[in-house]
C-alpha cells in the first residue's frame, strides 16, 4: 500500500472498538489519538521517545506513540487508559494506585497504569526489580517511584488473590 500527502485511511481497534480515521501519513500515533480522536489521556511529552508520557499499548505491549507513525497501527489493537477502567469500574491497578498514594501530579499516571497492566497481564506476580524494569521507560518527577512500585505489587497481590479464591 502507499499513501501521499492527502490522507490515508487507518483502521484499527481502539479500546475494543473498531475505528476508521483518515489521517496524514506523517502524523504519529500520538497525533492521531490526541488531535483526531481527542484521547487526551495520552500526553504529549518530549515527542522524541525519551519520557514515556505518550505510552499506549499496541497489541498488549507498551509503545511510545510519539515514535510510531499513524499508518503503522493499521489493523492493530490500541489500548489507552480509557480502555483499562473508568471511575465506576476501576481496574485493580487503578485501585491500587489510588490506595497506595501512587498519584501526585497525575501527568505520568496513565502511562504508568498502562505499563503496569501490560506487565501484570504477562507476569501476574512480578518482583520489585521486575516492576522497576518495566516502568523504566516512564519518567516521573514527583513520586520517586516508591509508591508506584508498591501500587503495582499491591495490584498483583489482589489479582493473584482473586485467582486463588
Amino acid at each position: 500500500m502507499r499513501a501521499g500527502g492527502g490522507g490515508i485511511v487507518v483502521r484499527f481497534t481502539l479500546n475494543g472498538r473498531e475505528v476508521e480515521v483518515t489521517t496524514r501519513p506523517n502524523a504519529t500515533l500520538l497525533d492521531l489519538l490526541r488531535n483526531e480522536l481527542k484521547i487526551l489521556s495520552v500526553r504529549r511529552g518530549c515527542e522524541t521517545g525519551e519520557c514515556g508520557m505518550c505510552t499506549v499499548l499496541v497489541d498488549g505491549l507498551p509503545v511510545r506513540s510519539c515514535l510510531m507513525l499513524a499508518p503503522q497501527v493499521d489493523g492493530r489493537s490500541v489500548t489507552t487508559v480509557e480502555g483499562v477502567g473508568d471511575p465506576e469500574r476501576l481496574h485493580p491497578v487503578q485501585e491500587a494506585f489510588v490506595e497506595a498514594g501512587a498519584v501526585q501530579c497525575g501527568f505520568c499516571t496513565p502511562a504508568m497504569v498502562l505499563t503496569a497492566k501490560a506487565l501484570l497481564d504477562r507476569d501476574p506476580n512480578p518482583d520489585e526489580r521486575t516492576v522497576k524494569e518495566a516502568i523504566l521507560g516512564v519518567l516521573c518527577r514527583c513520586t520517586g517511584y516508591a509508591k508506584i512500585v508498591r501500587a503495582v505489587r499491591l495490584a498483583a497481590e489482589r489479582v493473584a488473590g482473586g485467582v486463588r479464591e
Binding site: G49, G52, T55, V58, L61, P62, V63, R64, L67, M68, T115, E133, A134, L136, G137, V138
Partner: peptide, 9 residues
C-alpha cells in the same frame, strides 16, 4: 538497552 517501551518496537 533502553526501556521495555522502546524494545517492543
Amino acid at each position: 538497552m533502553a526501556s521495555w517501551h522502546v524494545k517492543t518496537t
